[in-house]
């Protein structure tokens, strides 16, 4: 039962946090729609934390406060992207919060989380809620509460993670763009992975036990659609049908033509863009914007039975959206108001 954290343990925790994040980086990337939807949050965060781990391992710090300090220094130097910079501030404050603690109990851990949030909020003029900042803040508050009841560091971390997850679920309510797209905040999700990794290290588990979590097809489709929305003209739509096909593998067919995801993806990519292919042992899910949805179905059917097909005409959808307001002529005043008096 580990109810305190020494330097060695903290090192293992940060390390495991980094491993966990790296493992899920793709999914975090996929969720990235704010502030700029360039799909690099996961990559940036993971590069940042890797730099922290590298620095930490080079120094032979033994006490918790020293480990945290070197880790935060590495983060600072390797910070990449918005979320990376925020992450570096969170852990800079984390280190500052436990400046004098060589071993961390529950209270010290809560203090560290709180310090991280304090520092992180100071470095921004206008904090945007519904981001990694909110998730960190809610988790830290919960940790502080929890630390009043128990000294067990593991329990405090468990409580903090629980709240972090709950807070993550709430991010779409705070940040409209997330709700619009139908995803949770990417940076917040990254932070949850890090905390979870830290907890696993504390329990002596490794992230290898944890199955990689993939972004669901729905999330990917939402983000993909969001990214291409906007300045589209109906005439500019080269591939007019948003096509989603689900196929259940059947043995007779896959024996004849074995399924290789990479090849399949390449085959499909000639028919359109915004291609997403997700598959497991039983099912392939395909999302593509294509001009001839029939070809996609033909290709997909080579591997099994179609179990779900959805085709939307995007030109129609788009025209319906953009033309409606134009049909009604805006009222044009025939004459300006007759008299204006100056007072």
């Amino acid at each position: 039962m580990s109810n305190t954290i020494n330097g060695q343990m903290l090192l293992a925790m940060f390390n495991e946090g980094a491993v966990a994040l790296e493992k899920h980086a793709k999914r975090v990337d996929a969720l990235n729609v704010f502030p700029v939807p360039d799909g690099d949050t996961g990559t940036n965060m993971s590069l940042t934390i890797r730099s922290g781990v590298k620095e930490m391992k080079q120094q032979d710090a033994t006490s918790a406060n020293q480990v945290a300090k070197t880790f935060s220094k590495g983060l600072l130097m390797g910070a990449r992207g918005n979320s990376g910079v925020i992450l570096s501030q969170l852990f800079r404050g984390f280190a500052k919060g436990i400046e004098h603690d060589q071993v961390l109990d529950g209270q010290a851990l809560a203090k560290a989380f709180d310090g991280g949030v304090q520092t992180a909020y100071k470095a921004v003029m206008k904090p945007v809620e519904g981001t990694i900042l909110t998730v960190a803040k809610d988790a830290a508050e919960k940790a502080t509460k929890s630390a009043k009841k128990t000294k067990d560091a593991e329990q405090v971390l468990v409580d903090a993670i629980e709240e972090a997850k709950a807070s993550l679920e709430r991010t779409p309510d705070l940040l409209p763009v997330l709700k619009e797209v139908g995803v949770v905040d990417s940076g917040g999700q990254g932070l949850v992975y890090i905390y979870e990794g830290m907890l696993r290290a504390m329990r002596g588990e490794t992230t290898a036990d944890d199955a990689p979590e993939q972004a669901t097809m729905e999330e990917l489709v939402h983000v993909e659609h969001h990214n291409i929305q906007g300045d589209m003209n109906p005439e500019d739509i080269e591939f007019g049908y948003c096509t989603e096909v689900m196929v259940r593998f059947s043995d007779d067919k896959t024996n004849e033509s074995p399924y290789v995801e990479e090849d399949f993806r390449n085959t499909l990519s000639q028919y359109g863009d915004s291609l997403l292919v997700v598959s497991d042992e039983d099912i392939i899910k395909i999302h593509i914007h294509a001009e001839h949805p029939g070809f996609i179905m033909n290709e997909a059917q080579k591997y099994g039975d179609l179990i779900h097909v959805k085709v939307d005409n995007m030109r129609d959808q788009h025209a319906a959206l953009s033309n409606e307001p134009k049909k009604t002529e805006p009222p044009v005043p025939k004459k300006l108001k007759k008299k204006l008096s100056l007072l």
Binding site: A79, R80, G84, V85, Q89, T119, A123
Partner: peptide, 14 residues
């Protein structure tokens, strides 16, 4: 205490 080059780059892209 922030990585200033990175903050500046973030501002540019945003």
């Amino acid at each position: 205490g922030t990585k200033i080059s990175e903050v500046a780059y973030n501002v540019q892209s945003k």
